[in-house]
Lab assay of single mutants.
Amino acid sequence: MQIFVKTLTGKTITSEVEPSDTIENVKAKIQDKEGIPPDQQRLIFAGKQLEDGRTLSDYNIQKESTLHLVLR
């Protein structure tokens, strides 16, 4: 499924993921596309910071959901 990751600069990254993918996994995909190390990434969805060990389905993230990427 496709999800969108919006950066603070307003850029939107499209990523191909599975509901069973972990947040860590998603951060790795963002690193592949943007070159941002996962340890600098914080992903936010519905006002919550997403934890690395959890999966997209844990957070009820569905296709075409938009996550927000904040850098630390």
Rank of each mutant, 00 (worst) to 15 (best):
I13R: 01
K63R: 12
V5H: 00
Q40I: 11
I13T: 03
R72H: 11
Y59L: 05
L50I: 03
V70L: 13
H68I: 15
T22L: 11
E34D: 06
Q41G: 05
I30Q: 01
I23K: 00
K29C: 04
E18G: 08
E16D: 11
E18T: 13
T22E: 02
T12K: 08
I44H: 09
L56H: 01
T7D: 07
P37S: 09
S57C: 04
E18I: 11
D32G: 10
V5Q: 01
T7G: 06
K11E: 08
S65A: 12
V26P: 01
N60A: 08
S20Q: 10
A46W: 10
L71P: 08
V17W: 05
K48H: 11
R42M: 15
Q2L: 14
I44V: 10
T14H: 07
K11I: 10
K33F: 08
V17I: 05
G47N: 06
M1G: 04
K29G: 06
D21P: 01
I61Y: 00
N60C: 06
K11Q: 09
D39G: 11
Q62F: 10
P19I: 08
G10Q: 03
I36R: 03
E64T: 06
T55G: 02
D58F: 14
K63I: 06
V17R: 00
M1W: 11
D39K: 10
V26D: 00
I13D: 01
K48V: 14
F4W: 07
T12N: 05
G10V: 02
Q41W: 11
T7K: 04
T9G: 13
I30Y: 02
L56T: 02
E18K: 14
V5W: 03
L50W: 01
I61P: 01
S57V: 07
Y59D: 01
D21Y: 08
F4V: 06
T66M: 10
S15G: 06
L67N: 00
H68K: 08
E16H: 11
P19C: 06
N60Q: 08
H68N: 08
Q62A: 09
Q40E: 10
Q49Y: 14
L43N: 00
I36W: 14
Q40F: 09
E64Q: 10
V5S: 01
G10P: 01
N25T: 14
R42V: 15
Q31I: 06
D52Q: 04
L69W: 01
I3W: 01
D32E: 14
L71I: 12
T55S: 08
T22D: 02
E64Y: 14
I36V: 08
K11M: 09
G53Y: 11
Q49V: 15
I36H: 08
P19S: 09
G10L: 03
S65P: 02
P38R: 14
S20W: 14
G35V: 03
E51W: 07
G35A: 05
R54S: 07
K63C: 07
E34T: 15
S20C: 08
V5P: 00
Y59K: 00
L8F: 14
Q40K: 11
T22Q: 03
I36S: 04
F45D: 00
A46E: 14
Q41N: 03
R72E: 11
L69I: 05
A28Y: 13
Q62T: 13
D52P: 06
Q62S: 10
K48D: 06
D58A: 05
I3K: 01
E34P: 03
L67C: 15
T9Q: 12
P37W: 06
L56D: 00
H68Y: 15
T22S: 07
G53N: 12
K11W: 10
T55H: 05
Q62N: 09
I13P: 02
G53D: 11
I23L: 04
G53K: 12
E51L: 10
F45R: 02
G53S: 11
I13L: 09
N60P: 03
E16W: 15
D58L: 03
T66A: 04
Q41M: 15
